[in-house]
């Protein structure tokens, strides 16, 4: 992991307050693995103070891309950046998804789809064609990221909460039928999205299909110094601790390691 100030190549508004930011960062691009994230300093001053974590969405040559939604102070500043400006970033951070024997299913919702594009591309480069399930609030949000996934040419299903595009409802509903199609097949499930979605994915997969989830928490440092980024572990972990640190032990975890809260 390194700290660098690098040039922005492109900051595209994709609709629904979603942006795709491309940064010239050869060192990070060369080292990045699907599932890892970067910490970005938004703005020069003390407000916002802390760096913001974003999954690596795509790696293209020397470029890394993040996909983000404008939510608060930090992302509002990032949305206003222009090509040519410099961005202070730390990365690549955290662990990565573990690639397993196919068939593989990737299920993501909202901004949780961000790391799944990089994951799908990594799988394709190893000869694995994943089955991709995507969920969004509505057509506008879905259209912000769907084209990048469609370009991969993998089997793809999608849903919107309001039914404005694709299946109406939660994409999670498409998971059990897919996994149950052939009982002899050992699906590997990879998920990132809103907490309730990952909790539901974990419940569906529990004790039947191996499942990896990418967790989100508040982070102050991203480099295991603050100990602020904890999630509760289901079973006491090897070190005897009750908590997992998302920036260090994660962000990717076996879904069964997490104590899911209702």
């Amino acid at each position: 992991m390194i700290q660098v100030k690098r040039q922005i190549i492109l900051n595209e508004s994709l609709g629904a307050d979603i942006y795709r930011l491309s940064i010239q960062a050869p060192e990070i691009a060369a080292a990045a693995q699907a599932g890892q994230f970067i910490m970005v300093k938004a703005g020069m001053g003390f407000d916002p103070l802390l760096r913001r974590p974003f999954s690596i969405h795509q790696v293209e040559g020397d470029e890394i891309r993040i996909l983000f939604k404008r939510l608060g102070k930090g992302t509002a500043l990032l949305s206003k950046l222009n090509a040519g400006e410099r961005l202070d970033i730390l990365g690549p951070l955290g662990n990565a998804f573990t690639l397993k024997q196919p068939p593989c299913c990737l299920i993501g919702g909202g901004m949780g789809v961000a790391p799944l594009l990089f994951l799908a591309q990594t799988m394709l480069s190893r000869g694995i064609t994943p089955h991709i399930l995507l969920g969004a609030r509505n057509k506008e949000e879905l259209m912000a990221f769907l084209p990048a996934f469609q370009a991969l040419g993998c089997p793809l299903q999608y849903a919107t909460d309001d039914g404005s595009m694709g299946q109406r409802g939660f994409i999670i509903e498409a998971l059990p039928p897919l996994l149950a199609k052939d009982n002899k097949v050992k699906w590997q499930v990879y998920s990132c999205g809103p907490y309730p979605m990952m909790r539901a994915v974990a419940a569906i997969c529990h004790s039947k299909w191996p499942c990896q989830v990418s967790m989100e928490t508040m982070m102050a440092c991203g480099i295991s110094a603050c100990l602020g980024c904890t999630v509760t572990a289901r079973n006491t972990n090897e070190k005897g601790g009750q908590y997992l640190h998302v920036c260090q032990d994660g962000p990717v975890f076996a879904a069964d390691r997490i104590e899911w809260k209702s």
Binding site: L49, L227, G241
Partner: peptide
Amino acid sequence: PRPGNPPPRIVETACGMLNAIGLE
């Protein structure tokens, strides 16, 4: 060893942050 406090443990505030790591 101390496990520390349950999450959430940190939050950003204007020009600062609050932490309740719980001395993990």
